[in-house]
């Protein structure tokens, strides 16, 4: 041997430890990814939940077009639409829009709408006071429900963002075993 060696057993232990650490690292990527996305807002999941006291002065110098997209995902027998497909607002201006949800099925269903904003970074400047997406909704069979979503856009919105799309996808929630992000506890992801 050319140099004093660590024994095979020691080296194997170190390498096995490295393997275990990398297995853990794979799972650590999950919270790391969430933290990274929340800080940078790059994946459009970051939408601020605020209350009325945080409203701002209205920036009348520009208009931002906010489009609404609705998807029923894998569900069938549902109609889900925005009453107005888009609105134009001044940053800082409070706006309430309506969404209509029709359950054509014969069963009661527990529904949650998951929002997403594009471009992703625009999500950082979208403030919601009220949204049906904050909670799960128990929807009666063969019923039509109207929801109100109240929001305003932060005046700090970068000037190059003139249009943003807010998309909602419906998911049916089975009561067990679904882990929700901590929506009620903190405001960072709703």
């Amino acid at each position: 041997m050319t140099e004093p060696n660590t024994s095979n057993a020691v080296l194997v232990k170190k390498l096995v430890l490295a393997v275990v650490c990398m297995f853990g690292f794979g799972f650590a990527l999950v919270p790391l990814y969430d933290v990274f996305c929340d800080l940078t807002g790059i994946n459009g999941r970051q939408i601020n939940r605020v209350d009325a006291s945080q409203t701002q002065l209205i920036d009348k110098s520009r208009l931002v077009k906010v489009e609404f997209a609705t998807f029923t995902g894998q569900l069938s027998g549902w109609r889900f639409e925005a009453v107005e497909p888009f609105v134009s607002v001044n940053p800082g201006q409070m706006k309430a829009v309506k969404f209509r949800l029709v359950n054509l099925n014969k069963d009661t269903a527990n529904i949650q709408a998951i929002p997403s904003v594009s471009p992703g970074t625009a999500g950082l400047y979208l403030n919601k006071l009220e949204c049906f997406c904050f909670e799960q909704q128990l929807i009666n069979p063969s019923s039509e429900t109207e929801f109100v979503m109240q929001f305003f856009i932060d005046t700090a919105l970068p000037k190059n963002i003139k249009v943003m799309t807010l998309a909602y996808t419906l998911f049916e929630v089975e009561n067990q075993a679904v882990v929700y992000p901590a929506q009620e506890q903190n405001n960072d992801r709703s």
Partner: peptide, 11 residues
């Protein structure tokens, strides 16, 4: 291999 195969196992 040691660095990435465990990540695949995690995935």
């Amino acid at each position: 291999l040691i660095a990435v195969m465990p990540v695949l196992a995690g995935a």
